[in-house]
Nucleic acid binder design. Structure first.
Lengths: 218, 218
DNA sequence: ATGTTCAGTTGAACGTGTTCAAAAACAGTA
DNA sequence: TACTGTTTTTGAACACGTTCAACTGAACAT
């Protein structure tokens, strides 16, 4: 019973926080306000969440879990490019209400040391959960991938996705139309490259890319 | 005479700040400490610098000016790839003492709204000063660039450089050897692509890249 | 000399994220 | 019921970046 109440308090705080973030944006929402809106003392927010950032991280985690089922339709397309397009479009739509404050996640994105970075250790489970979607898209569409590239392809697509999402978050065009254009254009290019990479002629090029990936991963 | 004293105070604060940043890192250095070390009241630091971030921005600006002459030897190479390599190596060496706290510049890098971002409006002059180096390398080595790509090539190289620097800043390998590897590998690839792009066959590919650049720039 | 002006300087105060010692509420046991 | 230990909750306190009203003093005008 203790746990139940505790869990409820936790989500009460989480939801008050997300409401505030949506209304006022992330930097404008204070921990005191979040606590007040939850009818709770300031310190309690820190009992349940390690930091203000951690609240966003938790939202992002839940979001990806919610997103699983929502991606099901996207994963029905036969062609890889259609799947990638549909996956990205689904994410755009799902995250749209929170687009503004998701910038908070990205503002520290470049710093791999920040726990909020998509590349950080704390966000590893989230990241790997996300990899799986791309792996599935590759597996099920049976697109042919050179053996040497195969183990890294999902990761590469994930990085591509992060770039797109970064652009989308800061996209000020009407209805983020520029992001949609970017996707339409770049998905085609990515898939073309992927297919081209099968040419035996391009083995040295693949080697270079693989070396780069190896260096990037340490 | 008033100006003289004023300017001296300004650099006194700037240098105390940079010393502290180097010793303790950016987040660990407080404005109070900076002021104290300059023998000055806290508020005065804000009379001369709009914010803590602004101090870093000013350092970066001066750094690029210092860097001009230092890049002269690099700009003597005949081959583009050698120039690019040398330019990056020169930057590595110059920035090395401040590598740690330059992360402060990058941690907000992803947020184009942050004044500290290399893509922000406040850092435009700095950025364009930097473009020029790449433009010169392209011009003077006479590497052939398709007409449609030419106006954007320096910008593209600059973005490539920012990626490399980002990696270098967070590179924990001994002597940042991984960054050097990354440069050696990737410069070759970039130049190969550039040369390949001249093939008439690749006109559609160029068109795609140009569309992407256009979308990215809005 | 005296007064005026204003760049230069001060330090207290504000609001922030975060910490922490203490209090309260609870669960289990006697 | 009373005692004990744990989990939950409180709110004051801390250090930070930043702001601001007030003060200082050199340069200049009268």
């Amino acid at each position: 019973m203790r746990q139940q109440r505790s869990a409820e308090t936790r989500v009460k705080i989480l939801e008050a926080a997300l409401d505030l973030f949506r209304e006022r944006g992330f930097p404008e929402s204070t921990m005191r306000e979040i606590a007040a809106r939850s009818g709770v003392a300031t310190g309690l927010a820190y009992y349940y969440f390690a930091s203000k950032d951690a609240i966003v991280l938790e939202y992002y985690q839940r979001a990806l879990e919610d997103l699983g089922p929502l991606l099901e339709p996207a994963q029905q397309h036969k062609k890889v490019e259609d799947r990638l397009n549909a996956i990205l479009e689904a994410k755009f739509q799902y995250f749209e209400p929170n687009r503004r404050f998701l910038g908070a996640l990205m503002s520290n994105a470049a710093d791999p040391a920040s726990p909020l970075s998509p590349f950080s250790e704390p966000s590893r489970p989230i990241r790997e959960f996300d990899f799986a979607q791309f792996q599935r898209a590759l597996d099920e569409t049976g697109v042919s991938i050179p053996k040497d590239l195969a183990p890294h392809m999902a990761k590469i697509l994930w990085m591509y996705q992060m770039g797109i999402l970064l652009f989308w978050i800061y996209d000020r065009s009407e209805n983020q139309s520029r992001s949609r254009q970017l996707v339409k254009r770049s998905v085609g290019m990515v898939v073309s490259l992927l297919k081209l990479s099968n040419l035996p002629l391009l083995k040295p090029a693949r080697k270079t890319v693989l070396d780069l990936v190896a260096i990037l991963e340490g």
